[in-house]
Design a protein around this nucleic acid. Sequence first.
DNA 1: TCAAAAGTGTTAAGTTTACACCCATGA
DNA 2: TCATGGGTGTAAACTTAACACTTTTGA
Lengths: 229, 229
Amino acid sequence: MDQTVKEIFKDYPKFYIVDCCVVFSFFNDSIHVLLVKQDHGPSIGTWVLPYGFVLDNEDIDNSARRILAAKTGLENIFMEQVRCFGEANRYPYERVIACLYYALINKEDFDEQLNKSDNTKWFPLTEVPEMKYDQNEMIRAAVTRMRYRTMVKPVGLNMLPPLFTMRQLRKLVEAINNKPRDKRNFRKIVEEAYYIEKTMLIDKKSSKRGAVLYRFNEKLYEQYLREKL
Amino acid sequence: MDQTVKEIFKDYPKFYIVDCCVVFSFFNDSIHVLLVKQDHGPSIGTWVLPYGFVLDNEDIDNSARRILAAKTGLENIFMEQVRCFGEANRYPYERVIACLYYALINKEDFDEQLNKSDNTKWFPLTEVPEMKYDQNEMIRAAVTRMRYRTMVKPVGLNMLPPLFTMRQLRKLVEAINNKPRDKRNFRKIVEEAYYIEKTMLIDKKSSKRGAVLYRFNEKLYEQYLREKL
DNA sequence: TCAAAAGTGTTAAGTTTACACCCATGA
DNA sequence: TCATGGGTGTAAACTTAACACTTTTGA
């Protein structure tokens, strides 16, 4: 049987596959994308999306996690596959199929790693440079998907610290949808979404008066989902 | 330069890639999926999603079109990539990465092809058999994506004939969302969407009284999109 | 003559939007 | 003392949902 399959397959071509990753975070009231300074090959010196080759015996999704952990030191982060980019000429030197992912991380978790190296940089989404190949298209596709996903599930919170103020949350939502929100209406909506729970902690960094800190409660979110039916 | 890239790449593995396709159509008040009787290899005799290998120098999306044209004789049909399925053990005999697509077709366009061969069959979505490997998961993923896409863009009409009745359209929407619609409210919504234009033709097949036939007007749709801003 | 689908408006409920002022505090 | 962000409620506009009967005609 095994032999039969090998027979059938033997005339078909094989391809290199890389996982590429658009890493988003939110700070300074803006969505940012993490880029890496390429240190070898034809694109050396240019900014590129974090990427790496898929290896034998490695699930393509796990491969993306491994690659991202290698670049950022972060594990257990929110990631989702966007789609494959498989144009024959997307990369001019070799046929390479790219499988695109995006990740949502809290920048603060990553700061110590970042400081160790000067070959990564956060770019505000609106100031991402022109990049080689189809990388800008990849970012657009990742943004579109991230926008959709955050509408359906509160995964955008992965771009914030575990404790956040109402203002941070509102600015995040404004940045994702590129549209301002009424402060009072926004607060009402968040209060309905009771899985975003008010803590008794006060943030004093962002204002003189101090602002209540909120946090995401997984358990309450599950309850909320059940109730919504 | 070319040599450098080859050097860099030479130790990385390569993979077989197949495009799989979930072909949807709508008739008899139900969404249907097209399956093919496998005629060789380890799954011989089982129902499988139409699939085929990606070839050298072929865009991965074009490959899906070529494969589907070979199975159905249909060209220029609506297709969208869903995502890659790349678990290391998804196919037990060889490492194969699958790139999933879905297609929306009008069954009538395909009937003459279908009659030529008895190795394809339309299954109502609710009666799709258990299939090998991750094919049932693929169908679920394709349904989810198709559902979303039809909410955002009127691509569901690709599953109907060019001329359709209000009832057909309503049943289609009910089937996609698995939820009944109020007849009068539905009609109101369609009338707002003026790109679905009333013709002067009457369908006499589906009812004794006869029903007005509608059709999708591309030009009006573009105008509608511009006005919505 | 009757079964089966076609066609037709109104009202209540719910959701979304718009809007302006006082509060607390650190610099 | 003032600049900065924090915090608060209501009413109008709009959207969505609920609802029942008459028409046509082929079998």
